[in-house]
Design a protein around this nucleic acid. Structure first.
Length: 892
RNA sequence: GGGUGAUUAGCUCAGUUGGUCUAGAGCGUCUGGUUUACACCCAGAAGGUCACAGGUUCGACUCCUGUAUCACCCACCA
C-alpha cells in the first residue's frame, strides 16, 4: 500500500482508537500474574468540557500507562467523572433560571425533583467529556469507568463516614464557617481566595477608646474591647473592667479583654470583636468564654439587633451606619486609601461571610489511626507517609509546601447546604426531651426520623477515589459486609491497590492529594499511591492564565486536534516541560511537533518505498545484518537511544526522553543515516530500525505510530499498543568505534559543505576534493562513495602527505585536512578571512588551555582524567593551528 | 508577614551529583537550495559577559551568601 505524502491525523485517529478499544487493549486483567501498574485518573467534572488542563494530564498519564504496559506490567488506568457538588448544582440552577425563567428552582422543584434534573443533565454531559478523553488517545480502561455518585462509591463514602464517627473523628458542632450567601452554603477554607480591595477604614470613639474598622455595619453587638496585655498605653485597664460607651443605637456596656493576638502596632492597638462573623474573633471569644451574637442573617441582611438598620443588605447599611455615628460625633477619621483583602469564593460567586453554624467536622488532631504500632492523628498520618518516603512527591520541593499546609490545617468542615452530592448519613428524631440521632449506612427503624439535609463536601468522596473505584459493585447491597470485608472481597482492590502514580496539577495538592492520603490511609490502612507526579499550569504565550472570559488567549484542544492531530498536541504538552513548573503553549509550538510527526511518517514512508522497490514485504523480514559503517553506527545509536529513553521514562523524566527521541529520529536517523543509505538501502536493517523507533515513540504519539505499525509489523505481531518495549543491549567497543568513525565521515562531509558554501560554489556543481590524513586513509577510502555523493564531489583524492596545494580552499579537522580544489574559482580573500577567524578562535582556546596546564594547582588538584583530557585538547588545537599557519604560507 | 520557584540567543525553553559546556534545541531572522521520503523539507549563517554583586574551588550556568525584578503559594490585620 502506498501512504500519502503528509500524515493526516483526521483519517486515522478515531478509527485507531476504536480498534484499540474494541480489541480490549485498554482493559486490565485482574487475574494476571504480571506486576500491576495503576493510575487512577483524576476525575474531570461531569459537566466539564475538555480543556488544556485535561489534555495535559491525559497525555502525561497515558505516556506512563503505555510505557508500562509495553514493559510488561498489568497496566490499569481507571477513568471516571466527578459529580462536583457545588459547581454542578450552580451550573444547573443557573441554566434553569435562564432557560425556564424560574427564579428559585430550589423552592419551585423541591429536593427530589431538582436532584433528578441535575442527574439528568449530568448524565447527558458526561458523554461529552468521555468522548473528548478518547480524542486525546487516552488508553484508559472504560470497562471500569466510575462516577463519584455510583452506588458502590456512595456506599464507601457512608462506610467511611460511619467509621470516622465511631472513632470520634467526625463531630457536629457550632463553629464558625465560611458562608457563601449567594450559594447559600458553606465552603471550605481552601475554596476561598483573598482579593485585594480598597475600602474606607473608619476610626470611631468607643467609650474611652478609639477603634478602627472597615466593617462598621457588623459592630452592633460589640461589647468587648481587646488589647495586647503588654501595651503600655492601656496599662491602666485590666481584663474584666467595664465601661459604658455611646454607640450606634444608644449606650452599651463594654468589657475589657486582654489577649496576645492583638497587634499593638496596628491602628490604635484596640479592637472590638464580632465573634459571629470573624474567625479570629470567634477563637478569641471561645478562649475567653464570651457571648456571641449574630448580626447578619444567612441571606446577607442585617438582623433585628441592628434596630432601624434591620433588613438592610450589608453594602447599603455600611454608609448609613457611618453617617449615624458621624452625627453622634463618634467618627474620628476615615482612611480612604486603606487596602485590605476580602474573602471571596474561588468560583467567583462573591464575598464570603463568616457565620456560626452547626456543621459536621473532621477532627485532624485526634490520635486514633494505627500506623506502625503507634496511634497517629490524621495530621500525623499525612506527615508520616510523606516524611518516610512511603509516598514520594515529584518534584520534591512540593513536600515543603505540603508540610507547611498541614501545619496550618484546621478541622475540616465537610457538610454543605446543597442538594447535589452524598447526603450526610445521619437521621434525627425530635424526641420528648433530647434529639434522637442515628448515624449509619441505612435509615433507622421506626417512625419519625428525618435525614440530615446536608451533603458532604465533594472532596470527601474524591478523597476515596483510588480505592472506592476498585470495590466490587455487586457487593453494594450486602450490608452484612463491613468496610474491611468490602476491601477483602474485591479482587480489583486486592490486585490494584495501592496505585503506583497519582498524576495531577499542583494546584490541587491540598484539595485532593493531601485528602486522599489522609482518608485512604485511615480507611484502608495503606497509602493510596506510591508516587505523586505534579504537573504545572498551561499558560498563554505571555505567561497569563488562559481564561474563558478572554477567548483570544484560549487554546482549545478541540480546535487543535483536527488541525494538528492529537499526537502533535501530546508532544507539545510534554517535551520542554518539567514537573511542577508552569509552561506556555502557543500554536507554533504545536505546529513544530506536527512537523516531527510528519517527519516520522515520511521516514517510514521512505523505508516502505525502498521495500516496494526491492519487492520485499516488511512483514516478512526477520533479522538483519550490519553491512556498512553507517549500519554499525546506526545499531550503536539505536542501542543508546533505547537505553536512554527507557531510563528517562523509568525516572519520570518525560521531557528528557521525548527530546532524546526527537533528536535521534530527526538529526541522526533522517538527516544522516537515511541520506547515506540512499542507493544502497539495507532493507532489513531499515525496517528493524523503524520498528524500534515506532515502539519508542508510541507512548508519546500513539496514533501515528500505531498507524505506521500496521505496515511494519511482522507476522504474528499484534497491535503496537500491546507490543513489548524494545530492550537495550549494551553496545560493545566495536559499536562505539563504528559510531566514532561514522562521526569522522559526518565531519568531513560537513567540512566540504562549508567550503562550498564559503566559496559560493553553485549548488549543482561538482567539485574536486583532496583529503590529507595520517590515520584514516582506509576509513575514508571505504566511505568515499558516500562522501562523493552527498557532497557532490567529482574526484576525491585521499593522500597521506600534504604538499603545497594551489588553488584550493581548506578546512582542518583533527588529523584531517580537507581541500576543495576549484580551478579558477577560488576566492583567496574569502578563504583567508575564514582561516583568520578560525585561527583567532583557536588561539583563544589555546591560551586558555596553556594557562590551565601551567597552573600547578590545577595539575596537582584536578583529577588525572581531567588533566589528561586538557593535554589532548591542547595538542589538537596546536595541530590544527600549525596546519592553518602552513596554509597561510601557501596562500601568500 | 512567612514560604517557594524563576531570571540562559529576538521569542519559548533544555542543561540531575561543579570538569568533553569551547553553553544547546525549537520557533523567528538572514543566505542558498526541488538532490531516490518529507517545503509540515534540505544545507548554512548571524545572535548569549548563563539577572547583578560577593564567596567557596585548581575550575562555577551548576554550590553558598546577599541584591534586584517577576511569578506563585500560605497566613491574614480588626
Amino acid at each position: 500500500m502506498s501512504l500519502s505524502k503528509a500524515y493526516d491525523p483526521k483519517t486515522c485517529e478515531d478509527r485507531i482508537y476504536k480498534m484499540w478499544e474494541e480489541s480490549g487493549a485498554f482493559e486490565a486483567d485482574v487475574k494476571s500474574v504480571r506486576e500491576p501498574f495503576v493510575i487512577s485518573m483524576p476525575p474531570p467534572n461531569a459537566t466539564g468540557e475538555l480543556h488544556l488542563g485535561h489534555a495535559c494530564f491525559l497525555t502525561i498519564e497515558d505516556v506512563f500507562i503505555r510505557f508500562n504496559r509495553m514493559c510488561g506490567k498489568e497496566a490499569l488506568w481507571l477513568p471516571g467523572t466527578d459529580h462536583a457538588s457545588i459547581a454542578t448544582e450552580s451550573v444547573v440552577i443557573r441554566k434553569i433560571q435562564q432557560e425556564e425563567g424560574i427564579a428559585d428552582p430550589r423552592a419551585t422543584f423541591g429536593r427530589t425533583e431538582l436532584v433528578r434534573r441535575i442527574a439528568e443533565y449530568v448524565e447527558k454531559s458526561r458523554g461529552t467529556i468521555r468522548g473528548q478523553i478518547r480524542k486525546m488517545g487516552s488508553s484508559c480502561d472504560w470497562s471500569r469507568e466510575r462516577f463519584t455518585l455510583d452506588p458502590i462509591l456512595s456506599r464507601c463514602v457512608n462506610e467511611v463516614f460511619v467509621k470516622m464517627y465511631r472513632d470520634g473523628l467526625i463531630y457536629r458542632g457550632h463553629r464558625i464557617v465560611n458562608w457563601d450567601p449567594k450559594l447559600q452554603t458553606t465552603v471550605s477554607d481552601d475554596e476561598i481566595v483573598y482579593v485585594e480591595e480598597k475600602a474606607p477604614f473608619y476610626t470611631f470613639q468607643y467609650g474611652p477608646f478609639q477603634i478602627s474598622t472597615s466593617r462598621p455595619e457588623t459592630k452592633f453587638g460589640d461589647k468587648y474591647v481587646v488589647m495586647h496585655p503588654d501595651d503600655p498605653r492601656y496599662a491602666q485597664y485590666k481584663t474584666g473592667d467595664t465601661f459604658t460607651a455611646e454607640w450606634i443605637n444608644g449606650p452599651v456596656v463594654a468589657t475589657v479583654i486582654k489577649d496576645k493576638v492583638i497587634d499593638p502596632n496596628f491602628g490604635t492597638g484596640v479592637m472590638t470583636i464580632t465573634p459571629w462573623h470573624d474567625h479570629i474573633d470567634f477563637d478569641l471569644a471561645e478562649r475567653h468564654d464570651l457571648t456571641k451574637e449574630q448580626i447578619i442573617g444567612f441571606d446577607g441582611k442585617l438582623l433585628p439587633i441592628a434596630g432601624e438598620f434591620a433588613e438592610l443588605p450589608i453594602e447599603k447599611a455600611r454608609p448609613e451606619v457611618v453617617e449615624k455615628l458621624k452625627q453622634k460625633g463618634l467618627l474620628i477619621k476615615v482612611d480612604e486609601q486603606y487596602v485590605h483583602r476580602v474573602a471571596k469564593n474561588h468560583r467567583g460567586t462573591g464575598v464570603i461571610e463568616p457565620q456560626i453554624k452547626e456543621q459536621w467536622f473532621i477532627d485532624v488532631n485526634k490520635a486514633v489511626v494505627p500506623w506502625e504500632r503507634r496511634m497517629l492523628s490524621l495530621k500525623e498520618i499525612m506527615q508520616e507517609t510523606v516524611r518516610t518516603k512511603s509516598i514520594v512527591i515529584i518534584p520534591e520541593r512540593f513536600e515543603k509546601t505540603y508540610f507547611h499546609w498541614i501545619d496550618n490545617l484546621r478541622d475540616w468542615c465537610i457538610s454543605r447546604q446543597i442538594w447535589w452530592g452524598h447526603r450526610v448519613p445521619v437521621w434525627y428524631k425530635q424526641g420528648a426531651g433530647a434529639m434522637d440521632m442515628h448515624v449509619g449506612l441505612q435509615p433507622p427503624e421506626g417512625e419519625g426520623f428525618e435525614q440530615d439535609p446536608d451533603t458532604l463536601d465533594t472532596w470527601f468522596s474524591s478523597a476515596l477515589w483510588t480505592w472506592s473505584t476498585l470495590i466490587d459493585p455487586s457487593l453494594v447491597d450486602d450490608f452484612s459486609l463491613s468496610l474491611e470485608d468490602l476491601l477483602k472481597k474485591s479482587g480489583d482492590f486486592q490486585k490494584f491497590h495501592p496505585t503506583q502514580v497519582m498524576e495531577t496539577g499542583y494546584d490541587i495538592l491540598f484539595f485532593w492529594v493531601a485528602r486522599m492520603i489522609l482518608m485512604t490511609t485511615y480507611a484502608t490502612g495503606d497509602i493510596p499511591f506510591e508516587t505523586v507526579y505534579l504537573h504545572g499550569l498551561i499558560r498563554t504565550r505571555d505567561g497569563k492564565k488562559m481564561s474563558k472570559s478572554d477567548p483570544s488567549t484560549m487554546i482549545d484542544p478541540l480546535d487543535i486536534i483536527p488541525k494538528y492531530g492529537a499526537d502533535a498536541l501530546r508532544l507539545s504538552m510534554i517535551v520542554g516541560q518539567s514537573p511542577g513548573a508552569d509552561s506556555r503553549l502557543y500554536e507554533e509550538k504545536i505546529a513544530g511537533y506536527r512537523n516531527f510527526i510528519n517527519k516520522l511518517w515520511n521516514a517510514s514512508r521512505f523505508v516502505l518505498m525502498q521495500c516496494e522497490q526491492a519487492k520485499v514485504e516488511p512483514s516478512g523480514i526477520d533479522g538483519f545484518e550490519a553491512k556498512t559503517l553507517a549500519d554499525r553506527a546506526l545499531l550503536h545509536e539505536l542501542h543508546c537511544v533505547v537505553a536512554d529513553v527507557t531510563q528517562s521514562l523509568q525516572n519520570y523524566r518525560l521531557s528528557e526522553a521525548g527530546d532524546r527521541l526527537y533528536s535521534f529520529v530527526w538529526d541522526f536517523f533522517c538527516d544522516w543515516y537515511l541520506e547515506l543509505s540512499k542507493g544502497e538501502a539495507n532493507i532489513p536493517l531499515l525496517v528493524s530500525a523503524v520498528r524500534t523507533i515506532l515502539q519508542l515513540a508510541h507512548p508519546y504519539c500513539p496514533f501515528v505510530t500505531e498507524e505506521l505499525w500496521s505496515s511494519f509489523r511482522k507476522e504474528g505481531d499484534g497491535m503496537l499498543i500491546r507490543h513489548p518495549w524494545p530492550t537495550a543491549v549494551a553496545s560493545d567497543a566495536q559499536g562505539q568505534a563504528a559510531a566514532g568513525n561514522f562521526q569522522i565521515i559526518v565531519d568531513v562531509i560537513t567540512a566540504i559543505r562549508k567550503l562550498r558554501s564559503d566559496q559560493s560554489v553553485e549548488p549543482g556543481k561538482q567539485v574536486d576534493v583532496t583529503i590529507v590524513t595520517s590515520k584514516h586513509k582506509d576509513l575514508l577510502a571505504s566511505e568515499q562513495e558516500h562522501i562523493k555523493r552527498i557532497s557532490r564531489v567529482g574526484t576525491l583524492h585521499i593522500a597521506i602527505k600534504s604538499g603545497n596545494i594551489q588553488n584550493v580552499a581548506s578546512a582542518f579537522l583533527t588529523d584531517l585536512e580537507v581541500h576543495l580544489s576549484l580551478e579558477g574559482l577560488i576566492d583567496i580573500e574569502k578563504e583567508r578571512a575564514g582561516l583568520e577567524k578560525e585561527r583567532s578562535q583557536l588561539q583563544g582556546y589555546l591560551a586558555a588551555s596553556q594557562a590551565k596546564l601551567q597552573d600547578d594547582t590545577f595539575i596537582s588538584r584536578a583529577p588525572e582524567r581531567v588533566v589528561q583530557a586538557e593535554r589532548e585538547k591542547m595538542k589538537e588545537i596546536e595541530q590544527k593551528l600549525s596546519k592553518i599557519e602552513e596554509r597561510f604560507k601557501s596562500l601568500s
